[in-house]
Amino acid sequence: MATKNLPMREALRQALREEMQRDERVFIMGEEVGKWHGTHRVTQGLYEEFGARRVRDTPISEMAIAGAAVGAAMAGLRPVAELMTINFAFLSLDAMINHAAKIHYMFNGQFTVPLVYRAATGWGNQATATHSHMPEPIFAHFPGMYVGVPSNAYDAKGMLKAAIRDENPVLFTETIALYPKPSPVPDEEYVLPIGKADIKRQGGDVTIVTYARGVEWSLQAADMLAKEGVEVEIVDMRWLRPLDMEPVFESFKKTNRCVVVEESLPMFSFGSEIAAQLQEAAFDYMDAPIKRVSAMDVPLPYAAEIELMALPNAQKIVDAVRGVL
C-alpha cells in the first residue's frame, strides 16, 4: 500500500477533512479554529474549504464550547470541539463530565452525545505550571466518555476518524511535541478501532506499558537496552478508555516484569491503574515490583533546566527497567 510520511498535524487534518466530506453533520468549533487556522495549525485550510458554517470560530468561552457541543450532538450533529489546549479543559470540566459523559446514562439512553473534544496536551515547552498539564487520567476516571491518546501520525489519523464516527463522547488529546513528527500514513482510507492497544516493539524481558509521547521515549530506551542484550516489549495503550488490558496481561505473562511510563503525574495515575490491574489479574506471574516512570510530583517550573528534570526521559526508563531485572 502506498504511504506518505506525514507529520501528525497533517494526518489529523486529513482525518478531519475526510470525515467532514463523508458526513455533513460533522463540523468543527472552537477558539481560532477557522480564520486563524488553529493554534497548532491542525485545522489549517479547512475554513477556506468548508466555510464558516462548518468551521466555526467561537469566543473564548470554554464552558460554552464544551456545553454547546453536547447540545448539538444530542440534537443530531457531530461536533468536533477544539479546546485549544487541555489546560483550558479545566474550565469546561462540568460540561464534559456532568453532561457529555453522563447524559446518555442519566436519561436512560434517550439521548446520545456523539462528539469529539480535541485538545493539545503535554509539556516540556517552558509553558509554565498552568499550561503544562497532561491530565488525561482525570477524564478517564469517569465512565461515559472515551479518551484517546495517540503516539504517532498514523495512529492519530485512524483513531480520530473512529472517534468522530462513534456514538459516544470522546476526549482526544494530541501531544504538542508530536505534531511535527512524521510517520508513514497510507494514501488509502483506514480507521483504527476505539479501545485497541498496539504492540510497538516486541521483546521477552520486560513489558513497558505507555501511551502518547511515552512511546517515543520508551522506543529510545529500548534501543539503549538492546545494546545490553535486554529486549523490552512496548505496549502503546492508545486509549485510556476503553482500557485494553488483554495485550498487557499477555505480555506480562511472558516477561513477568513491567515498567509503566507516563508523561502525567504519579498520584492516582495511569501507572497506578495499570499496576493495580496487573497485580489483581496476574499476581502469580510477577517476578519484580512494578515500577513507574512519571513526571515528578511538582508543578512545572519555567526554567528549562529544572523543567526537564521533572519529566520522564529515555534514561529514566532505562534505569527503571534495570531496576526490575
Binding site: 463540523f27 458554517r53 464552558m63 460554552a64 464550547i65 464544551a66 456545553g67 454547546a68 457541543a69 453536547v70 447540545g71 448539538a72 450532538a73 444530542m74 440534537a75 443530531g76 450533529l77 461536533p79 460540561a95 453532561h99
Partner: peptide, 14 residues
C-alpha cells in the same frame, strides 16, 4: 444553558 445554545445551533445549521 450551553446545551440550549447547541440545540439551537443544530436547528440553524440544518
Amino acid at each position: 444553558l450551553p446545551l440550549a445554545t447547541g440545540i439551537a445551533l443544530k436547528v440553524k445549521y440544518m
